[in-house]
Design a protein around this nucleic acid. Structure first.
Length: 1042
RNA sequence: GGGCCAUUAGCUCAGUUGGUUAGAGCACUCCCCUGAUAAGGGAGAGGUCCCUGGUUCAAGUCCAGGAUGGCCCA
């Protein structure tokens, strides 16, 4: 019975992960990992809440993996890392889904359908995929408390949001204003700037040049350009640039006024009849194109405005105050009327008779046609430009005058910027780049949405006197309303039904019907997740601000901003100290994944194929976090083979031989580190260096380089340490077992944050099974601390040298065409003098690996000949005909001396026709030629050669190794256990080989008996071979254990 | 139109404050090693370091302009 549970090199990671998940769940490991640090210094993580009304995709896996690794690491470092899940449940995306399902379109239909029922469906839909989210979260090993999440639609959450808004209200940070806003006519709501930015797209719009008849000058027109003909019925003025040059031109029977710099827009010949500054036009009147709405003020005249440019259009801008922010400014300045020709649904109002009820964009061609019919159209073209569309429903946005509620973030711009400077952004450039720029250009936060499913704006207004109150808590609402509202759903329509008696005039106060921007919900989570300040004040104090938040780069203006803005306005400090910003996940072809393109990678496919650790490892190590990354299952598979299986096999190797030898950690026979062979001390030196590196990297939020360092170590562990120490394990060498064990156990701890399943599986078997006192899970263990005393830089350098010499030696053997199994007499090494001693100390490793008998330090010339070759391309132009003579001189020269000089970077001098010619190192090259008896490889100052002579003695030894190898191959093919003993028969092997090496062959093949001949009929396996030109038959028979 | 990021081998990525002949892994060819390995090693093939110009003794690296892609803003 072995000490450890046997480990097969053929591992099913998926099945193993399922077992680990079950173990974690059964033992409550996650809860314990948090609880065990209670009382320790908190390290605070905030979860950016996803919406569960859609399925999670691979991009969510990326963020969740990053959100997992650092909390795990800090937990292992001894911090108390509370992890509360959250759900974002409000907002337009949710409403849009429900609208689609109900087949509704627009706010009117929703209201006819009934807001109560509509919101009930919204409430249901937000958790539609919550189980899928939980499954995925669970499956990828993202440890977060999904059983006690904060939910933005809960009354308690809303109450905290109200408290924040009330606080802002009391500080005059919340106000209402008329403003032209980007407005989605389909959704019936204005959009916030960050929403608008989600929907810019190339589009083709009309480009029409319209003739505005100048009053008192028949046949003369102001030429005006617009891409939105539908705004023309709302026109009230024209704007020109005061200092801009304008001209009056004659074309056929008509005269046009336009900017001189824009004459290019005219078709055909024209005659300039007059030139003047724009200010000369101010006050001139024109005949309005349309007169649908009654107007009392004076209007339809020319004004000056500084935003008029001559980059496009005609230099004369049509002003429709209801449909442009700048237009509204002009109207305010000049007391112009605001013509509301369009309804809240984006259709013309009844007064606009010809097009009443028509969606404005659809009316564009009709209006253009109407103008053409009336002779007021100069020309109509189309124009391709970027224009904002609704990010959810793709309807073109209209700029439209609405009343809206705002938060005065601009007033706190300096605070926002100052707080930003305290944040550690990863990558750093976000701070002054993307996020800093955004804050620099801060505008007041458009808070309100004229929608249904959201946190209601807690502002009530009196019918009679216009008095406002902002309600900051449920209790305040109850007190003002004078009734028990503990059962009230704070959503619409129920909250709308609550009216308050006006304390000023006794009138009735009704709630403003808006709900608020959902980004405000999520940005309020530091407070609202604890129902602060109504409950959990201490918890809040402890859990604010966050040490760590992490989302993809698209959250810069989303959640990162809303968190930052609310925290800064409320407490004048940042909500988070460190922010890791992730790049987007692209498909295998480098394209953005989108549902509409159908190239979204389903995380389950790759999780089912390769397992969660593989996906995690790939996402963490394949590229720095902020880089966009291409994702494909194929690349994840590569990671499995290269990293995970290499580690696993090393682990399996250890367990196999530890069990065979009955070795267990803590064995009294294990020598102290100083007493172990250099190879062991080297491994532990590298190991402690690794610990230091990974610790430092994770502390700096750099999972990528930490992971890459681990991968590099595992590669060295498997392909150098185990390879070189293998024989010692067969022999039960305690130092080897102890060294490999320490490396593997440390690796499980280093890997715990990266690949928690694999680390757990190894921990359970390597540690937990042999040590009752050990933590129940690797995730309850402390992160390893580096032992600096074990780091030996000189040894590390010496080992690098060894590996280099081995590499060159293998290249030399390869060049000689002598396989490694054939022993050779001598390895000749030329290297810098100071490296000879370190190499000599480790010579055994080199000789063993290269299968040579002795190491000798030589001068390079002893094993290679130099041949100097002139470079005619460089020397020809300089020397001309003398080159030929130089060649001749070189023929008889001492190439060894010249080559040595050139290789040292020195010029050489040759006598040519009694004249000294200097040849620079770049004018000649040195070729290395083998000399008889050696094969060599050269790299920089290193020359490594093997003596190629194979004596009969060496040949016999080589034959013995061939036999051992083939016998072992046969053992393997016969699927024998590593401990099985065999009887061996050999036929066709020369007697002298057996005479000298029978013992060796027996030992290598674990043979209890070695005979010549074909062997009996009942052998376990037999094979005919051709070895070194001889026909040989080998046979083995398994000896049954007694 | 502006800001930020990226662009290095067929693919995925390294490449320090500028410094020899630009690297690794995967895939390909030949050879080798294997008493853990789905691994490993050697050799080969594979590069306009996105382009143009500049600074410098020296540029993948620094500067300017441009191209392409992505994100963000107007």
């Amino acid at each position: 019975m072995g000490v450890f549970k046997p480990v097969s090199p053929r591992v099913d990671f998926k099945a193993q992960e399922a077992n680990v998940l079950a173990f974690w769940k059964a033992k409550g490991i996650f809860e314990k990992s948090v609880e065990q640090r209670r009382g320790a210094e908190p390290w605070v993580f905030y979860e950016g809440p996803p919406t569960a009304n859609g399925l999670p995709h691979i991009g969510h896996v990326l963020t969740r993996v990053y959100k997992d690794i650092f909390p795990r690491y800090h937990t292992m470092k001894g911090r108390y890392v509370f992890r509360k899940a959250g759900w974002d449940t409000h907002g337009l995306p949710v409403e849009i889904e429900v609208e689609k399902e109900l087949g509704l379109s627009g706010k009117r239909q929703i209201e006819e359908y009934g807001v109560a029922e509509f919101n009930r469906l919204c409430r249901e839909s937000v958790f539609r995929y919550v189980e899928k989210w939980r499954e995925l979260t669970d499956r990828i090993g993202f440890w977060i408390d999904m059983d006690h999440p904060y939910i933005t639609m809960d009354n308690a959450y809303i109450e905290t949001v109200w408290w924040i808004l009330k606080t802002f209200w009391d500080r005059d940070l919340l106000y209402r204003d008329y403003k032209v806003v980007p407005y989605c006519p389909r959704c019936g709501t204005p959009l916030a700037d960050h929403e608008v930015s989600l929907g810019y797209a190339q589009t083709e719009d009309p480009s029409v040049f319209v003739k505005f008849p100048v009053t008192d000058e028949p046949g003369t027109y102001f030429l005006v350009w617009t891409t939105t003909p539908w705004t023309l019925p709302g026109n009230v003025a024209l704007a020109v640039g005061g200092d801009v040059d304008y001209v009056k031109v004659r074309q056929a029977d008509d005269t046009y006024v336009l900017a001189k710099a824009r004459l290019e827009v005219l078709d055909g010949d024209y005659e300039v009849v007059e030139e003047f500054k724009g200010r000369a036009l101010v006050g001139r009147t024109y005949t309005p194109l349309f007169r649908f709405l009654p107007v009392e003020q004076e209007y339809a005249y020319v004004v000056a405005a500084d935003f008029v440019s001559t980059e496009d259009g005609t230099g004369i801008v049509h002003i429709a105050p209801a449909f442009g922010a700048e237009d509204m400014e002009v109207a305010r300045e000049h007391g112009l009327p605001v013509l509301m020709t369009v309804s809240g649904e984006g259709t013309f109002v009844p007064e606009v008779k010809p097009w009443a009820g028509l969606f404005v964009k659809d009316a564009d061609p009709l209006i253009t046609e109407e103008l053409r019919r009336r002779g007021l159209l100069y020309k109509a073209e189309t124009y391709v430009h970027t224009y904002p569309f609704c990010w959810r429903c793709k309807t073109p946005l209209l700029y439209y005058a609405r009343t809206s509620w705002y938060i005065r973030t601009r007033r706190h711009k300096e605070n926002l910027l100052r707080a930003n400077r305290e944040i550690n952004w990863v990558p750093e450039h976000i701070r002054d780049g993307r996020f800093g720029n955004w804050l620099e250009n801060n505008v007041d936060w458009a808070l309100s949405r004229e929608r249904y499913w959201g946190t209601p704006l807690p502002v009530w207004e009196c019918d009679s006197c216009g008095e406002h109150v902002c309600v900051g808590s449920l209790r305040e609402l109850e007190e003002r309303a004078g009734e028990d509202l503990s059962e009230l759903d704070l959503h619409r329509p129920y909250v709308d039904a609550i009216t308050l008696p006006c304390q000023a005039c006794g009138g009735t106060m009704r709630r403003h019907p808006e709900v608020i921007d959902v980004w405000f919900d999520s940005g309020a989570m530091p407070y609202a997740q604890w129902h602060y300040p109504f409950e959990n004040r201490e918890t809040f104090e402890e859990q604010y601000p966050a040490d760590f938040v992490c989302e993809a780069v698209d959250q810069t203006r989303g959640w990162f901003y809303s968190l930052h803005a609310i925290s800064t306005l409320l407490h004048n400090r940042p909500a988070f100290k460190n922010c890791v910003v992730l790049g987007l996940v692209l498909d295998e072809g480098g394209r953005k994944m989108s549902k509409s393109q159908g190239n979204v990678v389903d995380p389950w496919e790759v999780l089912d194929e390769h397992g969660a650790d593989a996906v995690r490892w790939y996402l963490l190590t394949s590229a720095p976090p902020w880089a966009e990354r291409r994702f494909s299952a194929r690349l994840v598979g590569e990671v499995v083979r290269q990293f995970m299986l290499t580690l696993w096999n090393t682990y399996a190797f250890f367990v196999t031989y530890a069990n065979i030898e009955g070795w267990r950690p803590g064995s009294p026979g294990v020598p102290a580190v100083e007493g172990r062979p250099a190879l062991d001390r080297w491994l532990l030196s590298e190991l402690n260096l690794l610990v230091e590196q990974v610790d430092g990297a994770l502390a700096a939020f750099d999972a990528t380089s930490g992971g890459r360092a681990i991968a590099a170590f595992v590669e060295r562990l498997s392909n150098w340490y185990v390879r070189r120490a293998r024989r010692r394990f067969w022999e039960g060498d305690e130092a080897a077992f102890a060294t490999l064990y320490e490396a593997l156990v440390t690796l499980t701890k280093l890997l715990a944050p990266y690949t928690p399943f694999l680390a757990e599986a190894m921990w359970q078997n390597l540690v937990r099974s042999v040590s009752e006192g050990a933590p129940e899970s690797v995730h309850l263990a402390d992160f390893p601390a580096a032992d600096r005393a074990l780091v030996d830089e000189e040894l590390n350098a010496a080992m690098r040298l060894v590996q280099r010499v081995v590499r060159l030696g293998l290249a030399a053997r390869n060049r000689a065409g002598i396989k490694v199994r054939q022993p050779l007499a001598e390895l000749a090494v030329a290297c810098p003098r100071e490296e000879q001693e370190p190499l000599r100390a480790l010579a055994e490793l080199v000789l063993d690996e290269l299968n040579v008998k002795a190491l000798r330090f030589v001068a390079p010339e002893e094993v290679v000949a130099y041949r100097v070759k002139l470079n005619p391309a460089r020397l020809g132009p300089r020397l001309g005909p003398k080159l030929k003579a130089l060649r001749a001189a070189l023929q008889g020269a001492d190439h060894t001396a010249l080559g040595r000089a050139l290789r040292a970077g020195e010029p050489i001098v040759l006598e040519v026709d009694g004249e000294s010619v200097t040849v620079a190192p770049d004018e000649a090259s040195v070729e290395v030629e083998p000399i008889p008896g050696y094969a060599a490889a050269v790299e920089g100052p290193y020359t490594v050669a093997v003596a190629t002579e194979i004596t009969d003695e060496l040949r016999r030894e080589g034959m013995a190794r061939e036999l051992a190898r083939h016998l072992n191959q046969l053992r393997k093919e016969a699927e024998l256990e590593l401990t099985d003993r065999v009887e061996v028969w050999l036929a066709g092997v020369p007697d002298d080989v057996l005479a000298e090496h029978a013992d060796y062959v027996r030992r290598e093949a674990l043979a209890v008996r070695l005979e010549t001949g074909e062997g009996p009929d009942d052998v376990t396996a037999r094979k005919a071979l051709r070895v070194n030109g001889l026909n040989i038959t080998v046979a083995i028979r398994k000896v049954e254990a007694k």
